[in-house]
């Protein structure tokens, strides 16, 4: 029974490892330890702040969309209705301070207007909802799916491992974007299918990572001890194996959110993501394609939004990697 107690202790400890007298090596798996390391790394900190900022915007925008029917967008002075065409239609206006053949920019629309006269800044801000929701949710699906598959596969080995690994190899062999497009053409061109499709397509990434960790952890003495003490396989996987793979998975998940945002932008660009008039960055870029000659700035803003968001996730991911890499720490 000792092993079971230790197990539970360790699991709690993975979340709140602030108790004293903790072994330095074990402490590396903890969340608080990770946050402390991230705080010390200036690039990771920058990535974290940008992500926090964009997530806050996305949360605000989601509340406005789901609960308030864009009441906030109408109430806040510099925002406009993100979906409806305006009453006075000024299409393809340039950003403030610039001029194009169709007019000159005004403070009313700081980044200009799109092909239907809607405010680009508003649509960029409201586009965070799709990007962040899909980015986080798809990664969560891939993370949970990949962790389960990888843990089971690595822990049991044998034919279970063979079958599961051949399936994920197959998923991995089809180019990510092509797989998601095929998936969406089968089920529907809805953003929720994009989310699930990207999630399923990223299962192999986490599977590989977890499986290789599990195979190496499986032989550790404390797992043997737990087995000898009669702890169930399921509990060993959930309480020992998965918490011990925390660090590399966290790094990969952070990077994967960025990848998912890029993929979803590409899907929306091809017409497979969020459907108009819902504001999404990829779909704004798709619309801007037809107006590159009269209004070149229209194509610039959504791309910058994607770039900044993905850079933030990459900064945080790289920072985490450095923070959790024992070679660099020592």
């Amino acid at each position: 029974m000792m092993a079971v107690h230790e197990t539970q202790g360790e699991e709690e400890f993975a979340d709140e490892p602030t108790e004293g007298g903790v072994d330095e090596v074990e402490a590396r798996v903890g969340l608080a330890y990770t946050l402390k390391q991230v705080k010390r790394d200036s690039t990771a900190r920058m990535g974290f702040y940008i992500i926090a900022f964009i997530t806050a915007i996305a949360a605000f925008v989601s509340i406005d969309y789901y609960l308030l029917d864009y009441a906030m967008a109408k109430a806040i002075p510099f925002l406009h209705h993100p979906e409806r065409d305006p009453e006075v239609i000024n299409t393809l206006l340039p950003p403030v301070g610039m001029e194009n053949g169709l007019g000159s920019g005004t403070w009313e629309h700081p980044l200009g207007t799109d092909h239907r006269g809607r405010d680009i800044l508003t649509r960029l801000i409201y586009g965070t909802r799709i990007a962040m929701t899909v980015g986080f949710m798809a990664t969560a699906i891939g993370l949970v799916g990949g962790t389960l598959v990888g843990a089971v596969s690595g822990y049991y080995g044998g034919w279970v491992d063979d079958v599961l690994q051949r399936i994920t190899d197959t998923i991995y062999a089809i180019p990510f974007l092509v797989l998601v497009i095929a998936f969406m053409s089968a089920f529907g061109r809805d953003i929720s299918y994009a989310m699930v499709g990207v999630g399923i397509a990223s299962i192999p990434v986490f599977n590989r990572l977890i499986r290789s960790r599990v195979v190496s952890i499986r032989e550790e003495e404390y797992i043997e001890a737990a087995k000898a003490a009669g702890v169930k396989d399921r509990n060993i996987i959930l309480r020992h194996v998965i918490p011990n793979s925390f660090a590399p998975v966290l790094v990969q998940a952070t990077l994967q959110v960025g990848v998912s945002i890029l993929i979803v932008a590409g899907l929306s660009f091809l017409g497979f993501g969020a459907q108009p008039p819902t504001p999404s960055w990829g779909q704004m870029l798709a619309a801007s394609r037809n107006y590159m000659l009269p209004a070149p700035t229209f194509s610039i803003w959504p791309g910058i939004a994607i770039l900044v968001t993905v850079v933030a996730f990459n900064l945080l991911g790289d920072g985490l990697q450095d923070a959790l890499d024992p070679r660099i720490n020592n």
Binding site: G266, L285, S288, P302
Partner: peptide, 18 residues
């Protein structure tokens, strides 16, 4: 390199065309 891995390829394409 950081910007390169974070930029959507199709956006680079659009900017180059512009």
């Amino acid at each position: 390199a950081l910007i390169g891995v974070s930029t959507p390829s199709f956006w680079i394409g659009l900017l180059l065309i512009i």
